[in-house]
């Protein structure tokens, strides 16, 4: 039986991660939030788009089942926060995963191959950077119509550029290291070198950057929704809820506090988990 690549690394990383209490705690909290967002709406007495004309903007109230209160339109904020969480987490994680995949491969390839290939690949990145993002999104919407899927594509298409630059810089310095040259002399293929020698050594900064990307994407999505290009009423997301809540901050603070609290806790946990992962993936840490 052959051993899959780097099984040792991942096993050990998991063991190291388990010893990091902050990271484990964060992972548990994230999982809880995720499960709550997915399962919570099923157990709530109120659907997310039902308008209760007699209870608009009321504060949290357990008797009526409005645990987080209702919003200005009389919809149950608890369910809406969880539904919004589904959208935000999905957008955040999926777009980050897409940007990770493309950015890391693209950047590592450009940096490792170097020379003219690198110049061409990075000029393409520059050109894409220079495209006005809004213009790009509007173009997509016009051609393909509006859908959640397009938001992933649009955000992923922008986020991978920075990732590619970061990884390319690292790959450039890594390819001069002796172990990469040794692999070349041993006749390992270019793809093998990128996969085994370049990418694993960029993991540290990639993971940290990825944990920074998730909140960025979530905020991005709320911006798009605010402009009417993202999720549409009655569907919602944390970004949209926070924007609405901020408008009512003085009269009805719960409309801001609940979604913002969820977002903040999620981002905190992501950061701790990211730090923990980075340390866990570094074989030097004991």
């Amino acid at each position: 039986m052959t051993k899959p690549f780097n099984q040792g690394l991942w096993n050990k990383a998991l063991r190291r991660l388990r010893r990091n209490k902050m990271a484990v705690g964060s992972a548990v909290v994230l999982l809880a939030i995720g499960l709550l967002c997915v399962l919570g709406p099923l157990f709530s007495p109120h659907p997310y788009d039902e308008i209760y004309w007699d209870s608009m903007g009321i504060p949290p109230n357990a008797e009526q089942g409005f645990w987080f209160g209702t919003d200005a339109n009389g919809r149950d904020l608890f369910v809406r926060t969880l539904i919004g969480g589904q959208i935000s987490l999905m957008v955040g994680l999926a777009a980050t995963a897409v940007s990770l995949l493309i950015g890391v491969l693209y950047g590592a390839t450009a940096g490792y191959l170097g020379g003219r290939t690198d110049a061409l690949m990075m000029r393409l990145v520059d050109v894409l950077y220079a495209l006005p993002f809004m213009f790009f999104v509007i173009l997509l919407m016009v051609y393909f119509g509006r859908s959640i899927f397009l938001i992933f594509v649009a955000i992923g298409a922008v986020e991978w550029l920075t990732m590619a630059r970061i990884v390319r810089g690292q790959a450039l310095s890594l390819k001069g290291r002796a172990f990469v040259e040794a692999a070349r002399v041993c006749g390992v293929s270019h793809f093998g070198i990128i996969r085994r020698h370049i990418v694993p050594n960029t993991l540290g900064s990639v993971i940290v950057y990825a944990t920074l990307t998730v909140p960025q994407v979530i905020l991005f999505e709320s911006f798009l929704s605010f402009l009417g290009l993202g999720v549409q009423e009655p569907l919602t997301s944390w970004g949209v809820l926070i924007a609405e809540g901020a408008a009512q901050m003085e009269t009805a603070p719960w409309m801001l506090l609940f979604p913002a609290g969820f977002l903040a806790v999620t981002l905190f946990c992501l950061n701790f988990l990211g730090d923990g992962l980075r340390d866990a993936l570094d074989p030097k840490s004991t």
């Binding site: 690394l9 290291r177 172990f179 990469v180 694993p200």
Partner: peptide, 11 residues
């Protein structure tokens, strides 16, 4: 720098 810090000697 002559050995990849993220790989087991075996790999």
């Amino acid at each position: 720098s002559s050995l990849n810090p993220r790989l087991l000697v075996e790999t």
